[in-house]
Amino acid sequence: MSINTPALNGKSLKRRSSYTDTNLLLIITIAVFIVMYVCAVVFLKKGFTKPQMFFNILNENASLLVLSCGMTLVMITGGIDISVGQVTSLVCMACAVHLEQNGGNVFTSILLALGIGLAFGIVQGFLVAYLEFQPFIVTLAGLFFAKGLTTIISSDRISVTNEAFVKLCRYEVTIPFLGSVNKKGIFIPAYVEIGVVVALVLVVLLFCMLRWTKLGRNFYAVGGNNQSANMLGINVKLTKFLAHVLCGLCAGIGGYLFFLHACSGSPLHAQGAEMNAIASSIIGGTLLSGGVGNIAGTLFGVLSLSTIKMIVTSLGFDDPWWTNITVALMLCIFLLVQSVILSRKNKTKK
């Protein structure tokens, strides 16, 4: 009795592109951004030809960039965190009150911001990873908790007048050799705020973390296949927990950067920031189903999103609702693209 084991069909042995999913989506994102920006420069002109326009995008979105990076980490592990926007708001408010009414200094306010972010990350991470709750529900509760807490602290806008802090807010880092010439012919160098520097450093750190550390690779493994990752000897629960903690920390840092940019605390700060962060991550090539994504992609996701917002505004659609609709539209398109890519992949596997 001889039984031949069934050999595989030749079809499934066929090689396809050797791009990993992550790289493929990253390339799409970068291409989208470049095309968009070039189009803006060529057709719209206005401010887009000046380098400062580009750096203004960064100045405006340093906080969003950090939030999106945290979001990307969680989404790579297959989770989601929608509390980051309200945590940002809470951080601003808490720091403002700390500086203005409790006589705190800049250093302690930074610690406060990090502490709040960490606390949210740890609690939410514990509930998601170890008690196995749906991340969406847990962080929705986190969102409302932070929202309530913010208004409990103060329901009014609080402007910060602390001297050291205001100095930090106003600090501009000039970019050598880049800038524009004004009407009088004087060269004005381009500048970025200190927040941008922090955000970019963080981007580089997180990029390296995801690429070269074991923890970073574990994030991908857990998101790629939960059970497989477990059987490969990865502590899945700890990995998910750490992703949420890091995301919480990013929310703390992002919150402080928002605070630096706005110089005030208000319950209305960072409204809808979580949506922008999720949208940036998705546009940056992070798959909702987890396991695929890249911090570099997220950077370009944030840039693309901000650029399209600016384009929409400068096209004359300056009513506030247009930006929201644009964000939603972009989110929708990229979600559909992902869904189609995923279903095609599944089909070819069968």
């Binding site: 992550t22 690779r217 991908y220 493994a221 790629g224 059970q227 990752a229």
Partner: peptide, 11 residues
Amino acid sequence: ITLCPNLTVAE
């Protein structure tokens, strides 16, 4: 198969 499809063979 209990491997992660999104990672490389070596990983």
